[in-house]
């Protein structure tokens, strides 16, 4: 298989703030793991993803052992399910995110409800979790990409929206990080959301 030709770039370019993720490289490594069981390639993936997964998991699980388990489970699934990754359908980051989100969902359900029903793969099937870029829906505003709309926000609001929605920081955390009063964060977020709703068209209700 011509793996390197299959590696698509993600469309999510506009969130990048400075460092670019090397999507082509991650994709090559993931394909190497899938096709050659390449341990070296896996190590590269591990070093890229594991610290980030750990940090994200620590935000969701107070217990350190559970956060470690998310890393272990997610990366283990990456090793054992890499052959299900389809580079035609999206970036390696999207695929690994899906794996991590599913592991997290099942673990939280297990901890909260003591249910080991592992529903995540039915809700978000790993093998088909990404929509091919061929699927175009010209007739809908969604085409105009949420991110373009976010990028049209004034800088101050954009920063808060990205921090809150994409980096999952709380309003309090954002206030500290951006060194602004909590009230300012709240009002910027409110203003930004009002604008987004107008632009995206709240035709849903």
């Amino acid at each position: 298989m011509q793996t390197n030709l299959l590696c698509t770039k993600t469309n999510a370019k506009s969130i990048k703030m400075s460092n670019e993720i090397d999507h082509a490289q991650l994709c090559l490594k993931l394909n190497a793991v899938a096709q050659k069981r390449d341990k070296q390639a896996f190590t590269v993936l591990f070093k890229f993803f594991a610290p980030k997964i750990l940090r994200i998991a620590r935000g969701k699980f107070p217990n350190e052992a559970q956060a470690n388990e998310v890393v272990q489970e997610t990366m283990s699934n990456v090793w054992r399910k890499a052959h299900l990754f389809n580079a035609d359908k999206g970036a390696a980051t999207t695929w690994v995110y899906t794996v991590m989100r599913n592991v997290t969902f099942d673990m939280l359900r297990k901890i909260k409800g003591n249910k080991e029903d592992n529903l995540s793969d039915d809700i978000w099937p790993i093998a088909e979790s990404m929509v091919s870029e061929d699927d175009c829906y010209d007739d809908h505003l969604a085409q105009d990409n949420l991110l373009n709309v976010i990028d049209s926000l004034p800088e101050a609001q954009r920063e808060v929206v990205k921090g809150f929605y994409f980096m999952e920081m709380s309003q309090e955390q954002l206030a500290i990080k951006l060194n602004l009063p909590l009230g300012t964060i709240k009002s910027r977020l409110r203003l930004a959301l009002a604008k987004l709703k107008v632009q995206l068209g709240e035709d849903h209700d």
Binding site: T10, N11, A12, I15, K16, M17, N19, I21, F48, F49, K52, I56, G90, A91, T93, T94, V96, Y97, T98, S129, M130, L146, L147, K162, F166, M167
Partner: peptide
């Protein structure tokens, strides 16, 4: 999903 993934891992 693509956007959230990108943001998470950068």
């Amino acid at each position: 999903t693509e956007q959230v993934a990108e943001a998470n891992f950068e």
